Each structure stands twice: as C-alpha cells, then as structure tokens.
Computed example of a mutant assay.
Amino acid sequence: MNPKVLFRLVNDLVMTVLMLIAMAYYITGNMVHEVIGVVVLLLFIVHNFLNRRWYKSIFKGKYNMRRILQIAINLLFLVTMVLMMISAMLISSDLFPFIPINNDMVLRQIHVQTAYWGFIIMAVHIGFSWGMILNSVRRMTGITGTSRIRTIALRILSVLIVVYGVHASFEGEMGSKLFIYNPFGWSYDVTTIRFLIDNLSIMGIYIFGTHYALKFIQKQDKRAEQTI
C-alpha cells in the first residue's frame, strides 16, 4: 500500500478512536479529556493538511448529488470541529487556565453540543469514504477476489450493529444530547468497554446508512443516464 495512504488511514483511525475516548468525560476525568482534545486537534489539522487539495477543487468540475452532499458534510464537520475546539480552550481548567472567562455556561453548552453533533457528522463523513476504506483494507489483507458468503456475512453484521446502535441511541439519550444541554450530566452509567461498544454501534448507524444511501443514489443516477 502507498505509504501516504496508510499514514492517512492511521491518522484518521487514531483521531476517531481518541474522539470516542474524549466523549467519555465522566470516565476519563477532565485532565485526560483535555490532553486527548489537544491531540485530536493536532490530528485534525494534519487530516486537513493532507486533504488540502480537496478545498482547492470545491469550485471545480461537475456537481452531482453525491458531491454536493459530501461538500456540505465536510464543511459542516469543519465548522463543528472549529467551534468545539475554540470553546474547549476557552473553558479549559487544566491546560489553558490562564484564559479569563467570567461566564462560561454558554461556551460549555456550545462545546458539549458541537461535540455530539461532531460525533454524528464524523460518522457520516466516514460513510462517504467507507467504500475507499474497505478497498484499502482489502489491499492490506491481500483479499482480491469476491465472495458471496463474505458479502452476506458482512451485511448481516452491519444490520446487527445498526440494530444495537439504535438501541444504544435510545438508552444513552442521544437525541436529547443533540438538542438539549444538561449541565448536570447525563444518567448513563456504563463501563468503559460498554461505552466504546455503544458509541461505535451508534457510529455504525450513520456510516452504513450513508454508505448504502450513496449506493442507492448512484444506481438512480445511472438509471437516469440510461433513460436519456
């Protein structure tokens, strides 16, 4: 595999895992949360630097439904991450305590809710690249041929992840977290492993949903081209 592609995959994987850990604030504590946040910020800057050509190509070429949606999601993810990081530094009590903020309640609300929205948008963002990620994994593992059994097994696994993710979304009150700020924290007392499994499953809803929705859109585009 191309070393640059491998580096991108590793950078994005580490960033995703650390963002999940950062969300476990009541498990890790504030200091660990802030340190992880700084690392995520650095990895996010690297991610954008490696994909800087994408920004230059926004106003070039033809636009179809997939490209319009991808540009919207990418820019929304960028704005969400910037707001989350700026608000994080302003309310920091361990790494950046020298920044004077008198009333940080609004900033805390912005930080918490952009974090949850960023989590969902990140999953959709990954969903747009899921086909490329799967192809990269196939090349890394030496899988070249197709297998109907493997395809069926992976689709069944995807369905199970989505079903559990929906259950975890309701149990973890994800809908409320996206629209309501709770300064006293959310009553979702689980172990670290359970927290990671639940949130990975919730991510799975949006990753697989985006991936298969794009496949459907591509099929519709092809049919429309054939009828012209």
Rank of each mutant, 00 (worst) to 15 (best):
Y25I: 06
K215L: 11
F195V: 03
F77S: 15
A168K: 09
R67M: 10
N199L: 09
H33A: 12
R148C: 05
I156F: 11
T80E: 01
I197Y: 09
L76W: 00
I217K: 09
L157W: 04
I217L: 14
K60V: 01
L43H: 11
I228M: 10
N51R: 08
V5K: 15
P183A: 12
I180Q: 08
M89D: 05
Y55E: 02
D189E: 15
G165E: 07
K222F: 01
M1W: 05
N30K: 14
G172I: 02
H167F: 07
T141W: 08
M89L: 15
T192V: 06
F179C: 08
I99S: 14
I161E: 13
V17T: 12
G185F: 08
Y26W: 15
S87Y: 05
T28N: 14
I207R: 01
K62T: 02
A213C: 09
L20P: 01
S158M: 11
I228N: 13
A24W: 00
R53I: 01
M65H: 05
V10C: 05
V124S: 04
S147A: 06
L95Y: 09
G185Q: 10
S187K: 12
M89T: 12
F128P: 00
E171Q: 10
N135G: 07
M31D: 12
I143C: 13
A115L: 00
R194G: 11
S176R: 13
M15L: 08
G37F: 04
I202W: 02
L41D: 02
F184K: 13
F128M: 05
V166Q: 11
N102P: 00
F184M: 09
L6T: 04
N64H: 05
A72S: 04
M85G: 12
G175M: 02
L83Q: 02
L160T: 11
S87G: 10
T227W: 04
Y206R: 04
Y63W: 06
M81A: 13
T141S: 15
I101W: 03
G127W: 00
N199F: 14
Y164T: 01
M1K: 11
I27W: 03
I202P: 03
Q226S: 10
Y63P: 00
G61D: 04
L95V: 15
E173F: 04
Q109V: 01
L76C: 09
N102F: 05
S176Y: 02
Q220S: 09
E171R: 08
M19L: 09
V79W: 00
I228R: 15
I68E: 00
M140Y: 02
G185E: 04
I193L: 15
I202Q: 01
S158Q: 03
H33D: 13
K215D: 08
L154H: 07
D12H: 13
Y63Q: 14
F7C: 04
